[in-house]
């Protein structure tokens, strides 16, 4: 068999890109739904909006089977240790979407018990604004996250260590 015969049957690429391509097209979400954003999250999974079109329809309620945490809703002081534990139980590589105003900033709940943004305590890749966001917005976040994984994903997770340094910088700016 000559080399010329192989030309239309072979693709060459970098290993990192191949792995990222595999990962981005089968994100398994862990729904951490604590409030009304959770209802929109269900709508995203249901037939009308159908997140299966983007390969992440397999919602698993065990963190050990998931690689995308979607935090939908406000997180209070009593819930945050639970959130951190579930985040730690998820296997690498993993990503996090902070869905809605409350998960991202605390929203209107600027009170003694509501955590003012989960990104103070766990790493977040995508923020979805809205109260609650439309399902299309969450789908856009998933698509953007797929782009991000394709763009900077590496086989052994080098990008996570860079992100860790950035988060340290952000944490130092907190009051």
């Amino acid at each position: 068999m000559a080399i010329a015969d192989l030309m239309d049957q072979v693709v060459t690429t970098r290993l990192d890109e191949l792995v990222s391509w595999c990962r981005k097209n089968s994100l398994w979400p862990m729904p951490f739904a604590t409030a009304c954003c959770g209802i929109e999250l269900m709508a995203v999974g249901a037939s009308r909006h159908d997140i299966a079109r983007f390969g992440s329809e397999v919602f698993r309620f065990s963190p050990r089977q998931c690689d995308l945490m979607i935090v939908a809703g406000r997180v209070v002081m009593k819930m945050l240790p639970v959130l951190q534990r579930i985040w730690q139980q998820m296997p690498e590589p993993k990503w996090c979407i902070s869905m809605g105003a409350c998960a991202s900033t605390g929203g209107v709940f600027d009170t003694y018990c509501v955590v003012q943004g989960i990104d103070r305590f766990i790493p977040v890749d995508m923020y979805v604004p809205g109260c609650p966001p439309r399902p299309e917005q969450l789908i856009q976040a998933v698509v953007d996250l797929q782009e991000k994984i394709q763009r900077e994903g590496t086989m052994f997770g080098k990008e996570f260590y860079i992100a860790s340094r950035q988060q340290t910088k952000r944490a130092l700016q907190e009051p």
Partner: peptide, 20 residues
Amino acid sequence: YPMQGLGERHNFPVLKRGES
């Protein structure tokens, strides 16, 4: 008691990418 609390809601360990 202040509306925003006395800092209790910020009093948690921070999980970073490299460690979690």
